[in-house]
Design a binder for these strands. Structure first.
Ligand code: FES
Ligand code: FES
Lengths: 156, 156
DNA sequence: TTCATATAGTACTAAAATAGTCCTATATGA
DNA sequence: TCATATAGGACTATTTTAGTACTATATGAA
């Protein structure tokens, strides 16, 4: 279904939460309380985000995490990459050519184009956008990927 | 990594192959030979594509599969949906609200916007585009999702 | 100095999704 | 009537993901 992992979803929830007050320090335990995600899991996500330099960590008593950049400087593409690693829609585009058909493959180049288009879309959405809730009525709940809804065009 | 499944990758390879000569019938065994993908797997993919009305099947001797539409009328979004089901980047957007936080969730609407942006990107690429090989030099091999390559913008 | 608190890193287990295979039923052209 | 081809479903193995646990290290404050 072309989806992001649960951890990535948590990451966006957590980052959005922090982005509401970008200058505070948040401990993992704070975030557990306000998001409802289990502590070990929150902890795991925070570590990943910190390692990817989206958060800055402070150890020790009174420590915690804070945003490394302003909310409008961190985009969804970065968040996904932080949790799931470098993007590439197909195996051939991520792993350095373990594919035996590579030389004769006609569509690798096309997948790369698709990757870029998707990447551009993801890059356009920042934490600052996420902080502003979108009314659910304004958007369609389920992607009509298998329906005829081609008239649905969006400006990202 | 926000990737499509291997089966989806096979599906694009298979459909691209068929799209080269859109008026012929291809049996599963033909496609195995020309693509190198194992027969049971090819068979599985063809069935899925047929069920999703991207291919038309003909049973019996001299049977096989043909494109249901012209190459420029089938897009990548449809192919992905045929193999992986309806799209939705997060669990909350696909499954009909098994999410207990839904009512208080601020970011669901945002994910829907992201979904649409990605969908639009995928929808813009058709089988007709896939048939024309893209020279690999023209595109970057690995998505620089975690690098600073924001200057890379594409018109899909 | 000591200690409670908080993150860092790693290893491990459990669960879920995916990939791949196989078998039986059905349709159809020769 | 028979060889050929898809339809459909069931099943197994593999891989990926999610979640947990444990040890090490840093730090502010009593
Ligand atoms: S490079 Fe691997 S299938 Fe195209
Ligand atoms: S609706 Fe489920 S986390 Fe937002």
């Amino acid at each position: 279904m072309l989806r992001v992992s649960k951890l990535t979803d948590y990451a966006t929830v957590i980052l959005t939460h922090i982005a509401h007050q970008p200058d505070e320090l948040y401990a993992a335990s704070d975030i557990t309380q306000s998001t409802g995600v289990a502590l070990p899991t929150v902890s795991k996500v925070l570590k990943l985000l910190s390692k990817a330099n989206l958060l800055i960590s402070h150890r020790g008593a009174k420590g915690g995490y804070e945003l490394a950049k302003k909310p409008n400087e961190t985009n969804v593409a970065e968040v996904i990459a932080a949790i799931e690693g470098p993007i590439g829609m197909t195996e051939c585009t991520t792993s350095e050519s373990t594919c035996e058909q590579e030389s004769s493959c006609e569509i690798k180049g096309n997948w790369n184009l698709i990757n870029r288009a998707v990447y551009t879309a993801l890059e356009a959405v920042t934490l600052a956008d996420m902080v502003v809730p979108v009314r659910q009525q304004e958007v369609n709940v389920v992607m009509p990927m298998n329906k005829e809804m081609n008239e649905l065009k969006v400006e990202n």
